[in-house]
Design a protein around this nucleic acid. Structure first.
Lengths: 149, 149
DNA sequence: CTTATTGCAAACGTTTTGCACGTTT
DNA sequence: AAACGTGCAAAACGTTTGCAATAAG
């Protein structure tokens, strides 16, 4: 896993390259995602940063703006939940897909070489220039199946 | 492909089983999705039904309510586009996944046996009871790649 | 000192809800 | 007649935007 300092450097380089500025808010959001493993809504991130840093001011709009920026910079990635919004995670790990429990909301990550390969083949077959792909398996996780007895 | 009459019968049976009523509006929505091959937003469906049937009254809320009902009944399925909403299609065809062009919005359907199989395996590996799965490949379709030269 | 960024509140687009009225069974 | 469904308008929800004030380079 990449170190926080390296990640920070990467972010700062991207900012500089695009004539953008490095701010306290942007750093806090990056740090939050680095330190907290999991999948978070913009609201989650906003609330938790506010709670941990009562001294500094941050608005929800800044969280949205920064997440877009980080996503475009390929530092974070997101899973979409329809009208229920998106959840973000640090996107530097190896690409992976998700199992989502509809009862408890748990998200499990997985990676399957064969699926990745087939996706490439399919894009090729349709002369499609693939920029991204996502796969979601939704259902009930082990515990939630047990608890429903 | 299932005939419209069979589909209608299926829908009416589900309604009866759940103590629900068969209404003009519900029929129009079902018929629309049967006759129009493609992927539609609730707004699309609402507008097109209104235009074709100036005599009958229908509200957007009814479209949303009926689409939920049809989705729960596994008669239609949807693709989610984040904050941009959902698109619905008749869900009776064989399960399939989607290629989505980010430039022109075109949606291409595909089916891959191997991917389906791997998904089953993954669910099994995590003791996950799979209820549904979706895969989206997003990028540029053939024409949009050409037109960007 | 210039330019980007911020927080705020208002606006936005999609979806859901409360309610009085209508329709189906 | 009873129960469910409807349209409407208002509310809810996540997200985006305009703007004046602020902070970074």
């Amino acid at each position: 896993m990449i170190s926080y300092n390296l990640l920070l450097e990467k972010f700062q380089t991207i900012l500089k390259e695009n004539g953008l500025k490095f701010t306290k808010q942007r750093e806090l959001i990056l740090k939050f995602l680095y330190k907290n493993d999991g999948h978070f809504t913009p609201e989650d991130i906003y609330t938790m940063i506010k709670k941990k840093n009562p001294d500094i001011n941050i608005g929800i709009a800044t969280v949205y703006r920064t997440l877009s920026l980080l996503e475009n910079s390929e530092i974070v990635s997101s899973i979409s939940f329809g009208a229920q919004g998106k959840k973000y995670e640090l996107g530097l790990k190896k690409h992976h897909d998700h199992l989502i429990c509809t009862k408890c909301g748990k998200i499990i990550e997985f990676y399957d070489e064969e699926i990745e390969h087939r996706q490439e083949e399919i894009a090729k077959k349709f002369n499609f220039k693939m920029n991204d792909h996502t796969m979601k398996i939704v259902g009930l996780c082990e515990e939630c199946q047990e608890n429903s007895n």
